[in-house]
C-alpha cells in the first residue's frame, strides 16, 4: 500500500514531463527533463534512459538520492493541478538493456501514443533503444496544493 495520496497520484500519472535530479560526483544537483512513468501497484516512479544519455545513470549508481519535481500546469494532463516534489532512492535496472524497459511500454504509450512507431524503427537508432530503467522509490513528498507556491508545502513521509 503506497503512502502517496490519491490527488498526488493523479499528478504523477498524468504528467508529460518532470524535472528529475540526481547528484554528481562533486555533490552538485544535475537536473534533466524526463518522462515519468508512475506505477500505482508499487507506488514507484520509473524512467528509462538510453545509454546515449547515460551520465545520470553513473551518478545514480554512486549516489541513489534523487528527486522528481512535477510542476508547470501545461505539462500535467489532468483537471487537477498540484506542484509535487518526490524525493526518494533510485535503482538502475539494467540486467537487460535490450528489452527490459519494454515492460514499461503500456505506461509509456499512455503518455506518448506514437511511441510504438518509433520502437518499430529500432533499426534506425539502435543505440537509442538500449535503455536502462531508473526505479524511484518515493520516501518523502512535498505538495503545494493547487500549485500555490506562496504557502508551505504539505509533507508526506513513507
Amino acid at each position: 500500500m503506497t503512502f502517496i495520496p490519491a490527488h498526488v497520484e493523479k499528478i504523477l500519472e498524468n504528467a508529460l514531463v518532470c524535472s528529475f535530479t540526481c547528484i554528481d560526483g562533486k555533490g552538485r544537483p544535475v537536473t534533466h527533463p524526463l518522462l515519468p512513468l508512475y506505477e500505482r501497484d508499487s507506488g514507484n516512479i520509473y524512467f528509462t534512459s538510453s545509454v546515449l544519455f547515460s551520465k545520470k545513470l553513473e551518478y545514480i549508481k554512486r549516489n541513489p538520492r534523487v528527486s522528481a519535481l512535477f510542476s508547470n500546469r501545461r505539462f500535467i494532463m489532468s483537471d487537477e493541478f498540484h506542484v509535487v516534489l518526490v524525493q526518494g532512492d533510485a535503482r538502475v535496472l539494467e540486467e537487460d538493456i535490450h528489452h527490459g524497459w519494454e515492460k514499461l511500454l503500456p505506461l509509456w504509450r499512455k503518455k506518448e501514443p506514437y511511441i510504438d512507431a518509433y520502437v518499430k524503427q529500432r533499426i534506425a537508432l539502435p543505440l537509442f533503444w538500449e535503455r536502462s530503467i531508473i526505479e524511484l522509490a518515493p520516501r518523502k513528498l512535498y505538495v503545494w496544493n493547487d500549485g500555490d507556491m506562496s504557502k508551505e508545502p504539505q509533507i508526506y513521509v513513507r
Binding site: S19, T21, C22, I23, G27, R28, P29, T31, R65, V66, S67, L69, S71, N72, R74, V83, L85, Q87, G88, K140, Y142, M149
Partner: peptide
C-alpha cells in the same frame, strides 16, 4: 520559458527542487 526549476541538495542529502518565476 514558463518557469525556472531551482534545485539544491537539502540537509538530508536529497535534491530539493521548486518552480519559480
Amino acid at each position: 520559458y514558463d518557469e525556472a526549476i531551482v534545485t539544491y541538495v537539502d540537509d538530508e542529502g536529497y535534491p530539493f527542487s521548486y518552480p519559480s518565476s
